[in-house]
């Protein structure tokens, strides 16, 4: 599903340039649930952003489901993101004046799908995450765990190829974290390729493969026996 060869990325901070990714090679097959770990500054978030097409790499190649991803205009990038990728963030990033249903609908709106169809679809995914009765609640009326579940529904509604989660449990207590990871495992079981960036050991154990980054290169990449969240 994801093929990355010799990936380099640098950031310009003032006059200096910070070389964050120094030649990464990684391959992720369809259906894997991979945890990407590393201390801050290791480049894990940068890697996720490049995979998520939120940023461009400087050198090397990135292939997503056979499609070569290189620097492209914003319009095309937005289209790809919408079709291939789903995002879940640490701080949920829901639109605070839209209710749960409307938040989930948003990707479909940008796909140009008609109103009735998208409402129906969004409601289905909202039910899948168990929040059907909360569809008309605003984000500020939902708990952290509920918000993250709405975010997951939103990420899934466009039926992306890869789900990218950046510290999905970072803002949640341990019980709620387990509930959210349980949901992620269920989605993975149904066949979705999922990448989870985390710094928590417990969370990484709930995945089937752990990739460790340090100073812009991969220092460890091993398959593990996945632990059940709940």
């Amino acid at each position: 599903m994801i093929k990355i060869k010799n990936l380099h990325k640098s950031y310009n901070i003032g006059k200096n340039s910070l070389h964050v990714l120094k030649g990464l090679d990684i391959e992720i097959k369809e259906g894997e649930l991979v945890a990407i770990m590393g201390s801050s500054g290791s480049g894990k978030s940068t890697l996720l952003n490049i995979i998520g097409m939120l940023d461009n790499h400087d050198k090397g190649s990135y292939e997503l489901d056979g499609v070569i991803i290189k620097k492209m205009n914003e319009t095309k990038a937005a289209e790809y993101r919408n079709k291939f990728l789903g995002f879940v963030f640490q701080s949920f990033n829901l639109i605070n004046y839209k209710n749960a249903l409307d938040n989930v609908i948003l990707p479909l709106y940008y796909q140009g799908i008609s109103r009735k169809v998208r409402e129906k679809k969004a409601l289905k995914y909202l039910s899948d995450v168990g929040l059907k009765n909360w569809s008309h609640h605003l984000p500020n009326e939902l708990s952290g765990g509920q918000k993250q579940r709405v975010a997951i529904a939103r990420a899934m509604v466009s039926e992306p190829k890869v789900l990218l989660a950046d510290e999905p449990t970072g803002a949640l207590d341990s019980n709620t974290s387990k509930e959210v990871m349980d949901l992620i495992q269920k989605i993975n079981k149904a066949g979705k390729t999922i990448l989870v960036v985390t710094h928590e050991h417990d969370i990484s154990q709930m995945c089937s493969r752990i990739v460790k980054l340090k100073d812009g290169v991969i220092v460890e990449d091993k398959k593990i026996k996945q632990k059940k969240a709940l």
Partner: peptide, 15 residues
Amino acid sequence: KELGIRKAIGATPKS
């Protein structure tokens, strides 16, 4: 932030 979210989700610059 909201605009960033929209773009991440698939909003084109035109929209």
